[in-house]
Design a protein around this nucleic acid. Structure first.
Lengths: 344, 344
DNA sequence: CACGCGCGTGAAAGCGCTGTCATGAATACC
DNA sequence: GGTATTCATGACAGCGCTTTCACGCGCGTG
């Protein structure tokens, strides 16, 4: 910076003021300084600046993985927003328990960021408490923590609407396929299950535990097993609601393999609306991680700007049912009508 | 740090030495300092440290998007590697030309990182030159730049082997579908085309410009148009080699829609081997972005460690043909045999 | 017993910025 | 026309750390 100052024939104070866009610099001087800075290829060291301002100009995000549609979309909308605000984006990928423990032990983000966005972790109370005295705003994304700023999708409503869609098509035997996935990654399982159950109850359809199965995400084989369980029930489902598109697609893949037509014989509904869903013409419940990323980013910037704001409200995002080609009216209306009479 | 020093009854120098693990600290003092640091929940400020050491403990990556299988995989393998080395990961997402210009104008990474990984950009000479005097190791990933450390996949060989696979199945009319995508994002188009041409030439099959078409990535409609072009040729292809899995899948989607059986009537071969390929049972040429990320990360750490190393060699990664269900022997061997006689 | 040497430690000088305060010039006011 | 006021600018302290250098102690050596 001294070099720039010398070249422009001013003091470092003036250079600093110019480069930070303060208004108390005369236009000619500003021009001179900017020219010098450009010529010398100068960029302010955030490190040095942060030392005195106490602000790092960095937002840290803690994510379970970078390799997923969900995180990709969320970060992809978050990043430009931060850049526009002159902030850097620091990523902590915490894929397993060991890393997680290490993270909470050392809190490497401490003093190295102005805010932390925690994505999709089911944190323990201890962990949350640890983040509380991190000395910076912490925003919980894709999860809700009482009394802390959170941004998340309304999974209950999403599953409720999805299930209603199937009910409206005449289905009564509706299975729900839960996901067991990477540890520590919260898939909001319970909330989605809850919405499913709520819709059934509301429609007067009794809950049947046999219709709720779990499967491993990303495994065709595991999907085949779950499918087998459902298809070998005394009264198999006419529709399957999978908690995640990937699982829905795995089910469809197996159904096709077995020559069971979708949706003629079995309707399949997903949840997420990731690109894969479109490729498979999968009916699904859409959520928007990019909206989530954006909202979370905006909230972070707001809290950094004005830490007194102390926003503790939750931002809840909507879902939308997207009917495509894998859901259709139930195949045997006659049987259904008798059911209806039973309940009437 | 002063607090820790006071509590432990030593000078800040000693605290600094202890916390950095220097050996010139007596065991008793070390224990005292560590205890004090733990009690005060103290963590060294990287900012302040970097001010004097000149090292930021940060690696910057410049990526065109975060929302893609390729980037997700690459970063997902890069991140833990950096964390293990005590480095932070700083992400610059440059999705469009405006951001790109801004990035090269201000070079925000300057002095805020110890190394820069540039992913998948087709940089101009000017831009490369600009990065040259960034004052830190710059590693080019998924692209090669002469005289600069680069890590990339051997696209020519990949396309060569992919095309050979189709040739070996008896195909002679093999189309190649190029990708026109997000601007600034390099898909190595030319290299893959080159490999394709090389294989044909090597097999004595004349190049036919009609068999090379371009399409927009991620658009079913665009794929339909390209497909239409190929299917309305006087002598349509019996196999299609798409430069990217996503395009291959879009082609298959359209072929199925039109009741043209894959691979019985037309073989389709992709390139990338992203998860989508597996879902569609797509035969493809596999590359490993996670290997790429790892190699690039290791190279970055090496260059940071020992800037004298001045590694300018290129790391070239292999590809593998993965035959699945969308490539099969050509349908009309009779015609082919006559062809073969023609060339004999 | 004197001397030199290594070892553990502390004092102090910055690293590159920002922010306060002082300064002087230009403008405004009575 | 003299004083008050604004305004642009510069000098300088200090943010929290690392790193040199100097110091003093205890040891081995001649």
């Amino acid at each position: 910076m001294a070099d720039v100052a010398e070249r422009a024939g001013v003091s470092t104070s003036t250079v600093s003021r110019t480069l930070r866009g303060l208004s108390t610099v005369s236009p000619e001087v500003r021009a001179r300084v900017e020219k010098a800075a450009r010529e010398l290829n100068f960029a302010v060291s955030r490190q040095a600046a942060s030392l005195v301002t106490g602000r790092t100009g960095t937002v840290a995000v803690m994510v379970p993985t970078l390799n997923s549609w969900f995180m990709g979309s969320a970060l992809s909308s978050l990043a430009p927003l931060l850049r526009a605000a002159g902030m850097q984006l620091n990523v902590y990928e915490i894929p397993d328990l060991a890393e997680r423990t290490a993270f909470f032990e050392h809190l490497p983000a401490r003093r190295n960021a102005d805010a932390l966005l925690v994505f999709s972790f089911d944190l323990t109370d201890e962990e949350t408490a640890r983040l509380d005295d991190l000395g910076m705003p912490v925003i919980y994304v894709s999860q809700h923590v009482d009394g802390r700023p959170s941004v998340y999708v309304d999974d209950v409503a999403g599953a409720l609407h999805g299930t209603r869609h199937l009910l409206n098509l005449g289905h009564r035997r509706i299975a729900f396929v839960q996901t067991v996935g990477a540890s520590g990654f919260s898939f909001s399982s319970n909330e989605r299950l809850l919405g499913y159950q709520q819709a059934l109850t509301e429609a007067g359809v009794p809950l049947d535990d046999d219709l709720v199965v779990s499967t491993l995400v990303g495994s065709k084989r595991a999907a085949a097993e779950s499918l087998g369980t459902l298809l070998s029930l005394r009264e198999p489902p006419t529709a399957i609601f999978a908690e995640q598109d990937e699982v829905a697609v795995a089910l469809i893949w197996n159904l096709r393999k077995t020559q069971i037509p979708v949706p003629e014989r079995v309707s399949v509904l997903g949840f997420d609306d990731q690109p894969l869903a479109d490729w498979f013409d999968l009916s699904t419940v859409a959520q928007s991680p990019s909206d989530m990323g954006r909202q979370a980013g905006e909230l972070a910037l707001k809290l950094i700007e004005d830490s007194a704001a102390d926003h503790k409200g939750h931002i809840v995002l909507p879902t939308h049912v997207i009917p495509r080609e894998t859901t259709a009216p139930v195949a045997h209306p006659v049987v259904r009508e008798r059911d209806a009479e039973d309940h009437g």
